[in-house]
Design a protein around this nucleic acid. Structure first.
Lengths: 229, 229
DNA sequence: CGTATAATTGAGCAGCGTCAAGGGTTGTGG
DNA sequence: CCACAACCCTTGACGCTGCTCAATTATACG
């Protein structure tokens, strides 16, 4: 992991998590909870007293339209706040849904704010996290607005890989990737049917293979050529 | 303008601008400049010592892909920072392009940061502006990912109208709206050709008419039915 | 082991892109 | 003030990308 990638990713892995942990009990009251796969950790519109941080498992930020259409905004990984916006606002207009079984912490909002104001390192780490969340959101806008379905799927895979990279990955072999085709479709803004076809294409052409919660990365170069903005 | 709309819009009109102005000369060194219609106020990737605030005219945040495709992220209106991110980061990955002739101020970054830290009102106004910029970005993601071209165009018009509302609009008659069809297309993620057809439809069906820099709003109810998320 | 959920595959079609040509509008310089 | 260029908008023809509907087979879960 080189420093350019770190800057681009905008956050030093686990920093914010460690800073928060070092303050628990002291500045910060907290509790932990568990959600089963598919359960909502937070529901759009509900006011929450607490700021949530994912500890184990994967989750997604998902917008549900009344027409039944869904759009996933972001994958939430261990060490992430469910959204940094939770620090400033008690309600969000998207839900947080556990993809796998997920363990998460609840911190009281006032304590988190205090931490940010009193510890410069926490403030910095938080600022980076905001900029990262935001940059990824603008990239997603471009991806959805101006690219083909094939490119969009490649981009979505890459953007998750990038974030996993920061955390550290097995050097070779299958990568744990508990994302269903339905989820991929809702990230890339296409239907599950079309997603299935595209994944079959990628498998046949030897770029990557996704199955049973594992990603087999066969030709990263090709994937980046297609997916990179 | 009711308070719900204000909360939803996330910013009190002009607040940040007034706060910044009240500090100029005192805390804050600044200069002003002018860009002609079509000129770049800021170019993606260029480091900028200053934080830019639009004073007169309209501008856009635009991402340019090497393939020639463009995606507009947001319309910048008088009183807006070109992007709040400029306060934290000297470079942006999108450009700011003047849509009309535009006047803007350059504030030194350190001064703006100091203002935010020392004046709670400025901090609050800035926080609201961030949340607003961010919420609109997630709405744009949903709009681009999960809606038809017709809906997308309606949404784009509405989202601009909403922000103009906050500033105050003529009660009736044409609304100044200096957005070309090319720009609309680049916001809605469609081609200019298709945009032209859709606008013709909207004109014929009496929803709204856009021409020569003016928006004639004929049936706002209908527009909201189509465009609202 | 049964049931709900997810993935696959085919057929048909529509929404939107591409290409192309013509007409308006705006701005600039002589 | 006019002429020209550059840009923007409009409209038609055509075809591809990606959606819908539907039926079947895997996979996960209690």
């Amino acid at each position: 992991m080189n420093s350019v990638a770190l800057v681009r990713n905008g956050r030093v892995p686990g920093t914010l998590e460690k800073l928060v942990d070092s303050a628990t009990g002291d500045l910060l009251r907290h509790a932990t909870a568990v959600a089963r796969a598919g359960e909502a950790i937070y529901r759009a519109g509900d006011p929450s007293e607490d700021v949530l941080m994912l500890r184990e498992g994967w989750a997604t930020q998902v917008v549900q339209l009344d027409s039944g259409r869904r759009q996933i905004l972001r994958v939430v990984l261990p060490g992430d706040f469910c959204s940094y916006r939770m620090v400033f606002s008690p309600t969000l207009d998207f839900s947080i849904r556990a993809t796998t079984r997920a363990r998460y912490s609840r911190f009281e909002r006032a304590g988190v704010k205090l931490l940010l104001v009193t510890r410069p390192a926490a403030f910095e780490a938080f600022g980076s996290a905001i900029l990262d969340e935001d940059r990824r959101l603008t990239d997603l806008v471009v991806n959805l607005g101006r690219r083909t379905a094939k490119e969009r799927v490649a981009y979505v895979i890459l953007s998750i890989l990038e974030r996993l990279n920061v955390e550290g990955l097995p050097a070779a072999g299958p990568i744990p990737f508990p994302i269903r085709q339905t989820d991929l479709a809702d990230m890339a803004g296409i239907t599950t049917v079309h997603t299935s076809r595209l994944l079959a294409d990628y498998r046949r052409s030897g770029v990557f293979a996704l199955s049973r919660g594992e990603l087999h990365l066969l030709d990263r170069r090709a994937l980046e050529r297609i997916g990179r903005l």
